[in-house]
Design a protein around this nucleic acid. Structure first.
Lengths: 297, 297
DNA sequence: TCGTCTGATATCTATAGGCGTATGGATCGT
DNA sequence: ACGATCCATACGCCTATAGATATCAGACGA
């Protein structure tokens, strides 16, 4: 593929001339004198290799080759202008695509509000969201398959990725309404020592799982998982059915399910929700997302 | 619409670099040194207003804006190359559209062979053919709604249109096989004095009609039309049915119909078939058609 | 036949852009 | 720590081309 070296200005001059069919008027529209326009057209005709306009006896008309080239020129000019505008829009963060990975446990918490707010502010931006756990998020960030991660319990000591805390959620105990502890306004962790826990499988979110196990350990007992579920709604349902209790981020309270009660745990413990992104990522949309998510809370 | 003044070469360099993601190799593929390539990209980034590639730590990668611009650049380059090629093809007469008007009486004679030959030689050319009589052909030529006319008995004395004789056809008498004159190998015109003629209506081709009438007048009698028909095939059928005789260009002999005989007339008379085109028409397809039609016969 | 209009040509200037070579600075691997 | 790799920068050169003004040539109409 060799390059068809031909200046855009010539194409532009050609389209204007093709509309006016008059060198003087076309030159005026282009803001130049008439002779330069003649030259432009001449050059264009030279590179094409054929006359594009016939100027016999004062009457200017398109030749067949010119008629063939005109729509091409218009397409090219239009495509170029549109493409440039689009690229600029993307460059300024007014448009484009942002790929976001998020931990499943955030689907009930920060994610919905974040998405709504961002879409309101930047309607031209397409958001690709994919549920993934912390580890895969970090990998996906590094390989560039996502631009932003939303996760819990951000790991420290990484230099290629940056994290910013978005939210701190209290942990709450999830209990059957009929459970004796549900009568209290808050539940000491130790009181759960004998209970079986209903949790997401550890591989669905090792950070949060370990954090909850850590809370149990801090209270002096080893957490016993009696039942797994893959969604938080199911966790609540199973707790309501009496298959165990759970400890979960407070966002879970949005799940209103008969027979299930949420109670603060003591001592108060919090789980950090963070955004993660590549250090040095210049994608303006990343900055937009950070500023959308940061100062708000 | 202002013009996005940006050189094609920069777009080209950008696409190559986007493929290689390596300044050195891309420059080599472009046949230039590396620093000029850096400059090209720099300029392009300046006009776009944003970085198109990130070159952090030796690793070159497209930015979102670059990702947005890349397909645009490809489209523009491809469209330009294709369009240039198409315009050149049209300019050289390898493609395009040629509008041809033809007299109905030629549908049996030169037209089919002409069309086939032209299509074989220039398969990229679209031929628009429209049946029209001589007068409308001349008007259509002048107003540009056809590019070439095929007609009989070209008029003289015109300066804006040119004519070239394509063929000279003998006239033949069309007779019922049972007609006494069909026994002869040639028919004197005078022998048809008493016969009724089957012809196309005069307004379907005044030139030919008048020519035939002239032959009769030269033979000393006034032609009497006993029957009109709008197609030559019908003329033959009517002659075969005994509704009269006819005099027609020899091309009509291609119509093989039982009960119809064709005989040379005496004195031998010929009708000229000509192509007509605008004086000064630079459409290469017109020249192609003329050369296709001229030397062959 | 003579203005008038239209486009082509000639000539000149300024500038932008492309290219090359030489060099600097950062990063990475050994 | 050092060399290799890779991209950026800094010059200098040169060409192409856009632009202007002045002028010419042909066509057309009054």
């Amino acid at each position: 593929m060799d390059r068809p070296e031909l200046p855009i200005s010539q194409l532009h001059a050609f389209t204007v001339l093709a509309e006016e069919l008059h060198f003087g008027r076309a030159a005026a529209r282009l803001g130049i004198a008439q002779p330069p326009l003649s030259q432009q057209i001449r050059r264009l005709e030279t590179t094409v290799g054929h006359r594009l306009l016939s100027r016999d006896s004062g009457r200017v008309a398109l030749t067949p080759a010119g008629r063939e080239l005109l729509p091409v020129a218009r397409r090219v000019l239009g495509g170029l202008a549109d493409g440039l505008a689009a690229a600029r829009a993307v460059g300024e963060g007014r448009a484009g695509r942002l790929r976001i990975g998020f931990a499943a446990s955030l689907a009930l918490t920060v994610l919905p509000g974040l998405l709504r707010e961002f879409r309101d502010r930047y309607p031209g931006v397409l958001l690709d969201i994919a549920e993934m756990t912390t580890g895969p998020q970090l990998d996906a960030l590094r390989e560039g398959s996502i631009d932003v991660g939303l996760l819990r319990e951000p790991p420290g000591g990484l230099t290629d990725l940056l994290f910013a805390t978005v939210d701190e959620e209290r942990f709450v105990a999830v209990l059957p309404s009929s459970h004796p502890l549900a009568a209290r306004s808050s539940v000491p962790m130790e009181a759960l020592a004998a209970e079986g826990f209903v949790l997401l499988p550890r591989d669905q979110g090792p950070g949060l799982f370990d954090r909850i196990a850590g809370l149990c350990a801090a209270a002096g007992f080893t957490m016993r998982v009696s039942q797994h579920a893959v969604e938080w709604l199911t966790v609540c349902a199973l707790v309501g059915a009496g298959l165990g209790v759970s400890v979960a981020p407070a966002g879970i309270e949005r799940v209103r399910l008969d027979g299930v009660a949420f109670r603060a745990v003591e001592p108060t413990a919090r789980t950090r929700v963070a955004v993660a992104w590549r250090a040095g990522d210049e994608n303006p949309l990343v900055a937009r997302l950070l500023s959308a998510v940061g100062p708000t809370r």
